[in-house]
Design a protein around this nucleic acid. Sequence first.
RNA 1: UCCCCAGUAGCUCAGUUGGUUAGAGCGGUGGACUGUUAAUCCAUGUGUCGUAGGUUCGAAUCCUACCUGGGGAGCCA
Length: 466
Amino acid sequence: MSFATVVDVLSGKVAVGDEVTVRGWVRTRRDSKAGISFINVHDGSCFDPIQAVVPNTLNNYDNEVLKLTTGCSVAITGTVSESAGKGQSFELQATAVKVFGFVEDPDTYPMSPKPHSMEYLREFAHLRARTNVTGAVMRVRNCLAQALHRFFHEHGYLWVATPIITASDAEGAGELFRVSTLDLMNLPKTDQNEIDFSKDFFGKESYLTVSGQLNVETYACALSKVYTFGPTFRAENSNTSRHLAEFWMVEPEVAFASLDDIAYLAEDMLKYAIRAVLEERADDMAFFQQRIDKEVINRLEHVANNKFVHMDYTDAVEILQNCGKKFEYPVSWGTDLQSEHERYLAEVHVGAPVVLKNYPKGIKAFYMRQNDDGKTVAAMDILAPGIGEIIGGSAREERLDVFDARLAEMGLPVEEYSWYRDLRRYGTVPHAGFGLGFERLVSYVTGMTNIRDVIPFPRAPKSADF
RNA sequence: UCCCCAGUAGCUCAGUUGGUUAGAGCGGUGGACUGUUAAUCCAUGUGUCGUAGGUUCGAAUCCUACCUGGGGAGCCA
C-alpha cells in the first residue's frame, strides 16, 4: 500500500487496480441505500476532489463513515477504478477509512459546501483555504510565482534579496511603517525633548521597505541582470479592491537597458507567466471561467498572443481629448491621468494591456531618467483592463549632474542619497527596471475582483487578523 | 482620507404610510429515495434585527454618532 495525492489518481498516474491511500479533507458525503456512500475528498493537489466509494461492509461504516461531514480529515485506502458514474474518470473503491479528525459540531463549521460570499470567507482566512475558490487562487498564485522565477532564471537574471527593513526614508514611494523596539509608554528623549532614536534598535529611525528598487539597483550595477521578489509595505490609508498594506512585488533591474528594453521585458514576462497558468492550471482556470469571470480565459489568451500596444503619454492625452467621451476630470498635458482615463485607454481604446510611456517629469519620481525634450522622463506604466496599473517602471537617471540638478529642483536633501549617488560616481551605466504588483497580477489572471482574496492573509487598514 | 450603499437565523436575503407571536431558501439534524455529483423529496430547530444614544404610547423600520463591509475616488504596485 502506498500514498497518493488526488491529482495522481485523477490524472491516471496510478494504475487501475492498484491500492493506494489518499489523505485529505471531506468536501461532501452522499449516502446510497444500495449500501454505499460517496465521499469527495480534496487535498489541494488539484481543483477536483476524488470520489471514494465506501461500502457499508466496512466495520466503522455506521459509527464513523456515516458521521463524516464537510471538513473532516480522513485517509481513505482503496483500489483505483474507472468510475461507473459521471463527473470523474477515476475513483477509489474504499477498503478502509481512517478518520483523523471529525468536525466537532457540523452546525458551527463555517465552510459549508454551498457558495459563500468572498466577504464572508475573508472572516475565516484560516479555513477558506479549504474552499475550492481559495484553493484555486493559491494554486494559480503559486504557478505564477514559479513561472516568474523560471522566466528570470532562463533569461540569466539573479534573484537578489533586498532588505525588508530600511533606515532610508528617501525612497519616496508612500507612507512607511515604523520599525522600533522603543517602549512606546516610556520613550527616551533628547535634550531638545525629541524622541531619541539613537537609543532605538538600529540607532536611528527605521521602517519597513516600500520598494526594493534603490537597493537592487546596486546589484544591477554589478551583476547586470537582477530582480527582487519579496514583500513590500505601504502604510497608506488605501481602502480599495486593489491595494494592500503588505503585498509582494517583483522588481527586475537591468544594466545597460533602455525604457523600451524593459517594456518588452515586462511584456515577455507577463506572457510567459500567463501561458504557464493556461497550460499548468487549466482545471483552476476552468473554474474561474465558470464561476468568477466568463471572459477570463479568452482575455488571457488574447494577451498571450498579441503584441502590447505602446503609447506615449502625449499621444494618450491627445486621444483622450479627441475621443468624444465626457470625463468627470478634464485631460490636460502635465497632469496625471485619472482612473477613468486609464480605464478608457485600456478597456475601450485598446481593449488589452497598454504600455504608456514618457510621462511629464513633474508627476514622476526623482530617480527617473530625463528625456532630451527636457519635459518628460523615461517612465512607463502598464495598464491592465479592470485592474489599472499593474506595472510601473522607468529608466533610471544615471548622469550624476542631471541627477543632482533634479534633487535640487525637487528640494530633496543630497546627503540622503550618498550611496545611491556613488553608483553614478563610480562607473555609472544606463539602467532601467520596473515593479510588478504580484497580487494585482494574480487578480488579473484569476478574474478575482478584490485583491484581498488573492493573498492568504490580507493586511489592509483596520485589518490584520490571523 | 472623501463620496455613495449596506449590516435582520450558521449562510444568502425578504420584511417602511412606525403597530401583536420577525419570514423564505440553503446549510445542520431526523426520515424517504437514489452509482450519487452544489442530488432530490418530507419533517424540524434557530434571532441581543451591527453598537450606543435619541424621538415615540410603541422602533428592524425615523434621527445622531460610532464600528464593520461593499462600490467609487485619491495614493500607488
